[in-house]
């Protein structure tokens, strides 16, 4: 696989940066090249948050993603901004519990997942991001699903072991969601 350029975007607090970190660690586990670049500054405090992840088999030049292959959007402003940047044939993962419109472009693949609702229905408030990641892994294969559990165990802070189970459940719900 060549390079995959991904943008995660939403509100601060939705786990946007964590989602990117999760996939970046997945790529690292497979010994591939990876870069993770967050937005930083005042927008982190409740405004919009985004991060760019590049996963590649070749050394990565610029870590800045201008033309994403994949976008994960968790609020309306992010969808408005990143839908038009997607490359033709690119994939958009849309939290349809929070985003009220459909994709305008017809040359992209749009995946609608009511991730916030799914998380809430399953007692997994705050883990909508992981629901989407589960779905993204299934639809893109950008990292291996077989490593999901190893990854969760690696990234979830040791002080909060109860979160491992919740994260795995959220990933699983997303992976098995039929868009």
């Amino acid at each position: 696989m060549a390079a995959t350029q991904i943008i995660f975007a939403g509100f601060g607090g939705q786990g946007i940066l964590f989602s990117g970190k999760f996939l970046a660690n997945g790529a690292l586990l497979e010994d591939r090249q990876v870069s993770w670049l967050p937005s930083y500054g005042p927008e982190m405090r409740g405004g919009t948050a985004n991060c760019s992840v590049i996963i590649s088999d070749m050394p990565i030049g610029s870590p800045i993603v201008a033309d994403p292959d994949v976008v994960v959007v968790m609020n309306n402003p992010s969808f408005d901004k990143y839908e038009e940047l997607l490359v033709p044939g690119g994939k958009a993962f849309i939290d349809s519990s929070l985003i009220t419109r459909q994709a305008v472009r017809t040359d992209i693949e749009a995946y609608y997942i009511p991730a916030t609702q799914i998380a809430s229905d399953n007692g997994l408030d705050g883990l909508a991001n992981m629901v989407i990641i589960g779905n993204l892994i299934r639809k893109t294969g950008v990292v291996s699903w077989d490593n999901a559990e190893t990854l969760v165990r690696k990234i979830v802070p040791a002080k909060r072991p109860e979160l491992i189970e919740y994260n795995l459940k959220a990933l699983d719900l997303g992976y098995n969601w039929e868009n």
Binding site: L28, V34, S35, W36
Partner: peptide, 8 residues
């Protein structure tokens, strides 16, 4: 950018 980005 370099300060904030993560790489292996």
């Amino acid at each position: 950018t370099l300060g904030q980005m993560m790489e292996p």
